[in-house]
Simulated scan of single mutants.
Amino acid sequence: MNFASVRIITDDLDRLVEFYEKVTGVSAKRPAPVFAEFVLPSCTLAIGHSQTVQLFGAGTARAADNHTVIIEFRVHDVDAEYTRLKPLVDEWVQEPTTMPWGNRSALLRDPDGNLVNLFAPVTKEALERFSGRN
């Protein structure tokens, strides 16, 4: 089994696509008006309009109702990304901080309220743990 992607369901696809294009620096692929994908070297982030949920069956997902998942992006320099994105982000949950497990991390909310973590391993142990990963 291979992990393929994470999909966010939203009522405002264009707004969320524009936000993640700015965060990732990657243009979204739009194979349909109600669906977009960010194909990154290590993963794919998909965004679907809430209309797409009907294709999977009623009640399978609700837009902007996530309280358990954090979308994480490994970055080269957390502090530089924080500075770059600070004017674009409405809510910062945590300014750059070094976590007990050795990652430097900044936590924000996207326009739908989903938590997004920008992190970089910075301690020797964390760097070793991520060695060989994209």
Rank of each mutant, 00 (worst) to 15 (best):
Gln54Ser: 15
Glu128Cys: 04
Gln54Pro: 01
Asp79Leu: 02
Val6Lys: 00
His49Tyr: 01
Thr44Arg: 03
Arg133Phe: 15
Thr83Cys: 06
Leu55Ala: 14
Met99Val: 04
Pro121Gln: 10
Thr97Phe: 12
Asp79Glu: 14
Thr52Arg: 02
Asn103Asp: 15
His76Pro: 02
Leu13Trp: 01
Ile9Phe: 09
Glu81Tyr: 08
Arg30Cys: 00
His76Gly: 11
Asn134Pro: 06
Ala36Phe: 02
Leu107Gln: 06
Pro100Thr: 09
Glu125Tyr: 05
Arg129Gly: 01
His49Arg: 03
Leu118Cys: 07
Pro111Cys: 06
Lys86Met: 07
Ser42Asp: 12
Asp90Gln: 13
Lys22Asn: 10
Glu95Asp: 13
Ile70Trp: 09
Arg133Met: 15
Gly25Lys: 04
Leu115Asn: 08
Asp79Thr: 08
Val69Asp: 09
Asn103Gly: 01
Thr52His: 04
Thr60Glu: 12
Val53Arg: 03
Ser50Tyr: 03
Val93Lys: 11
Arg129Ile: 03
Val17Leu: 08
Leu55Lys: 11
Ala64Asp: 12
Asn114Thr: 05
Val17Ala: 05
Ile8Gly: 00
His49Leu: 04
Val17Tyr: 04
Asp14Tyr: 01
His49Thr: 00
Arg74Cys: 11
Arg109Ile: 02
Leu13Gln: 02
Asp11Ala: 11
Phe19Leu: 07
Val78Pro: 00
Ala120Lys: 00
Gly59Ser: 08
Gly113Arg: 07
Leu55Trp: 12
Val39Asn: 11
Glu81Asn: 06
Asn114Arg: 05
Gly113Asn: 08
Pro31Asp: 10
Met99Gly: 00
Asp112Arg: 05
Thr98Trp: 07
Pro111Thr: 09
Arg15Met: 09
Leu115Ser: 11
Val39Pro: 01
Leu118Phe: 14
Phe130Leu: 09
Val89Pro: 03
Thr52Tyr: 04
Asp112Phe: 06
Asn117Trp: 05
Pro31Asn: 08
Tyr82His: 14
Val89Thr: 09
Asn114Trp: 06
Ala36Glu: 01
Lys22Ile: 11
Arg7Glu: 15
Leu40Asn: 01
Arg133Thr: 14
Val122Met: 06
Cys43Pro: 01
Gly25Asn: 07
Leu85Trp: 12
Ser27Asp: 08
Val53Leu: 05
Pro33Trp: 06
Pro41Asn: 10
Lys124Pro: 07
Gly113Gln: 06
Leu85Arg: 12
Asn2Trp: 08
Pro100Gln: 10
Ala36Asp: 03
Asp90Cys: 05
Ala32Lys: 11
Arg74Val: 10
Asp110Pro: 01
Gln94Cys: 13
Arg133Val: 07
Thr10Met: 10
Ser42Leu: 05
Val75Tyr: 01
Gln54Leu: 15
Ile47Leu: 14
Val89Arg: 01
Asn2Pro: 11
Ser42Thr: 08
Trp92Thr: 02
Thr60Leu: 07
Tyr20Phe: 15
Lys124Met: 09
Ile47His: 01
Ala80Leu: 10
Val34Phe: 14
Asp11Glu: 14
Asn114Pro: 06
